[in-house]
Lab assay of single mutants.
Amino acid sequence: KELVLVLYDYQEKSPREVTVKKGDILTLLNSTNKDAWKVEVDDRQGFIPAAYLKKL
């Protein structure tokens, strides 16, 4: 599985998104959309803007 590093805090703005903190390391589920990547956070799945993430 692929991991990503969170570069900036992000507060979810819709039910399809998830809230993350800078420095979190998350499982990347889908990065086919260049604008928003799907990740898993504490058994929740949701989207975060790709600009907030860096592949490890």
Rank of each mutant, 00 (worst) to 15 (best):
K1R: 14
K1L: 11
K1T: 11
K1E: 08
E2D: 11
E2R: 12
E2C: 15
E2G: 11
E2V: 14
L3K: 11
L3R: 10
L3Y: 15
L3A: 05
L3P: 02
L3T: 07
V4F: 03
L5C: 12
L5P: 00
V6I: 03
V6G: 00
V6R: 00
V6W: 02
V6M: 01
L7N: 01
L7T: 03
L7G: 01
L7C: 08
L7K: 04
Y8N: 12
Y8D: 11
D9C: 07
D9N: 07
D9G: 05
D9Y: 08
D9Q: 02
D9P: 05
Y10A: 01
Y10P: 01
Q11C: 12
Q11G: 07
Q11A: 12
E12Q: 14
E12A: 15
E12N: 07
E12R: 14
E12K: 14
K13L: 12
K13T: 13
K13P: 06
K13W: 07
S14C: 11
P15H: 10
P15N: 10
P15R: 08
P15K: 09
R16E: 15
R16I: 13
R16H: 14
R16W: 15
R16P: 07
E17G: 15
V18Y: 05
V18M: 13
V18L: 15
V18K: 02
V18E: 01
V18I: 15
V18Q: 03
T19M: 04
V20G: 04
V20H: 03
V20R: 00
V20D: 01
V20W: 10
V20T: 03
K21G: 03
K21Y: 09
K21W: 08
K21F: 10
K21A: 07
K22I: 04
G23M: 03
G23P: 01
G23T: 03
D24R: 09
D24K: 06
D24M: 15
D24F: 06
D24Y: 05
D24H: 06
I25E: 01
I25H: 02
I25V: 11
I25Y: 04
I25T: 04
L26G: 06
L26H: 05
L26V: 13
L26T: 01
L26P: 02
L26F: 03
T27E: 06
T27W: 12
L28A: 02
L28Y: 01
L28C: 09
L28R: 00
L28E: 00
L29W: 04
L29V: 11
N30T: 08
N30A: 10
N30S: 13
S31A: 12
S31V: 05
S31F: 06
S31N: 07
T32C: 14
T32E: 14
T32F: 10
T32Y: 09
N33R: 11
K34L: 10
K34M: 12
K34H: 11
K34W: 10
D35C: 14
D35T: 11
D35H: 14
D35Q: 12
D35W: 15
A36C: 15
A36F: 15
A36T: 13
A36E: 15
A36R: 14
W37I: 02
W37E: 00
W37M: 01
K38E: 15
K38Y: 15
K38P: 02
K38L: 15
V39K: 00
V39I: 08
V39G: 00
E40H: 06
E40I: 12
E40Y: 07
E40V: 11
V41W: 07
V41Q: 07
V41S: 09
D42N: 14
D42I: 08
D42Q: 11
D42A: 14
D43R: 12
D43K: 11
D43V: 06
D43F: 09
D43A: 10
D43E: 11
R44H: 07
R44S: 05
R44K: 11
Q45Y: 08
Q45R: 09
Q45H: 09
Q45T: 13
G46W: 12
G46T: 09
G46D: 03
F47E: 07
F47W: 15
F47T: 08
I48S: 01
I48L: 12
I48W: 02
I48K: 01
P49E: 04
P49I: 06
P49D: 05
P49H: 05
P49C: 07
P49A: 04
A50L: 05
A50V: 11
A51F: 13
A51P: 09
A51L: 11
A51D: 10
Y52R: 03
Y52P: 03
L53R: 00
L53S: 00
L53M: 04
L53D: 03
K54P: 04
K54M: 14
K54S: 10
K55W: 06
K55Y: 08
K55N: 05
K55G: 03
K55A: 06
K55H: 07
L56K: 02
L56C: 13
L56M: 09
L56E: 03
L56D: 03
